[in-house]
Design a binder for these strands. Structure first.
Length: 209
DNA sequence: GGTAAGATCAGC
DNA sequence: CTGATCTTACCT
């Protein structure tokens, strides 16, 4: 029951998910396993324990973000800019909104399958760099929204690392509010980690949320 | 029922 | 720096 470990605040959950392995597919579909090396924490509504104006759940529960309000250890997928799919792992106790966005991973098994999905020209460290690319390489789709990643029968599965990671933290990428909050975490020395680019819509640095 | 905006990526 | 392209949320 590793999901119990994620039944905590999103920052703690983010550190637990760093270094964890993510596996998708198996059987007839190509299986790909990747080690998570970059994540971002997202909180919830203003009246909850982790207010976060940058979170999809900040304005309360909706059809799209319902998984964030559910129990920990479920996959929350959403479509970004009409084209890309991004994947989060829900955390916090049931009824409380929080999740961890998966931003980058090192492909450890199934590189051939991943490259087939991403294109032959893509460099190896870039196969699962960026949340949209990560989902593309692992063939994570909107059909996977809500699946239990700690269920061995799920199409997408997570196995937490034995020892907790010692991550570096910094501001989240691409968010237009609370842009200075250091809720992005990554493991040092990985070329898979995406470069930081502040959202063009974010206010100048130093403006608090 | 219409529309604006978005936790992105690839290609000029 | 821009275009692609679609879902959601929040109006009227």
């Amino acid at each position: 029951m590793s999901s119990r470990a994620l039944s905590t605040d999103p920052v703690t959950a983010a550190r637990l998910l760093l270094g964890a392995t993510l596996t998708s597919g198996g059987g007839t579909t190509g299986e790909v396993t990747a080690r998570i090396v970059e994540v971002e924490a997202y909180g919830g509504p203003p009246d909850g324990p982790w207010p976060d104006p940058a979170s999809h759940s900040h304005r309360g529960r909706s059809t799209r973000n319902a998984v964030m309000f559910g129990s920990a250890g479920r996959l929350y997928t959403y479509r970004s800019h009409g084209i890309h799919i991004c994947a989060n792992i829900s955390c916090g106790p049931g009824g409380t909104a929080a999740a961890v966005l998966l931003r980058a991973a090192v492909i450890e098994r199934g590189i051939g399958v991943a490259r087939q999905r991403r294109g032959a020209l893509v460099a190896e460290p870039a196969l699962a760099r960026g949340p949209g690319n990560l989902c593309s390489a692992l063939a994570i789709t909107m059909d996977h929204n809500g699946v239990d990643v700690f269920d061995a029968a799920s199409p997408v599965r997570v196995r937490l690392a034995d020892s907790p990671a010692d991550p570096i933290c910094g501001p989240r990428v691409g968010v237009s509010v609370a842009a200075d909050r250091p809720w992005r975490f990554w493991l040092a020395g990985h070329p898979e980690v995406s470069a930081y680019r502040r959202s063009p819509r974010a206010p100048l640095p130093g403006v608090s949320d």
